[in-house]
Amino acid sequence: MGNLDLSFFTWDLVSKFLVKGFVFSVELTLVAMAGGILLGTLLALMRLSSFKWLSYPAAIYVNTMRSIPLVMVILWFFLLIPFLTGRPLGAEWSAVITFTAFEAAYYSEIMRAGIQSVARGQVSAGFALGLTYGQNMRMIVLPQAFRNMLPVLLTQTIILFQDTSLVYAIGAYDLLKGFETAGKNFNRPVEAFLLAAIVYFVICYSLSSVVKKLQLKIAIIR
């Protein structure tokens, strides 16, 4: 102890190694969140459908994704996408597709709970007013489901942000990789990983405090 040397940590290092990784981690999180919630909502609607040919495939997809370690899913997509399309895809793009597909399964479970949290009377009232299924979902059920589940969706997004560090498995350049590379270049791995942990902690802790506040706000309005 006592020989931590943080003098290597300069603005030059931040702009050279960290900004690129940070931007990618954030981009990956945001794209996977948007795509995941969209796909996840579709999956949730499929699972709640009374048509077995819709609900079964959705259930199989969601349960399969949820029972495989994320690292294996990342490796699978990295292997399968070039195999199916016939040309190699960069680790970064592969990660974007993987996380969208993977998170969709988790978001769909949240959206399913959200849709089920809307009182049955609301659905019946919508149908009684002559709304079609699509109109009913779009104007009555989904807005309420989304609002009820907002804190949970955001908490899942924080977990997603933490999980983006696993793209390490295919060598994509994310925030963690940025710290690792900086640590290697300056021969200061200890300080680099310590800083990485602090940065991740600060980001995730502040985000989860914001979510907690939001949760209280939503609870009061309801």
């Binding site: 560090s165 696993l166 963690l176 310590l194 990485a196 942990a197």
Partner: peptide, 24 residues
């Protein structure tokens, strides 16, 4: 709980692997 929940598992693993042995 906050400490161990807000750092990605992989980063925690690197802490145990690289940082803690250097300090202890």
């Amino acid at each position: 709980v906050e400490l161990f929940r807000n750092i990605p598992l992989l980063v925690q693993l690197f802490l145990w692997y690289h940082v803690i042995p250097a300090m202890i």
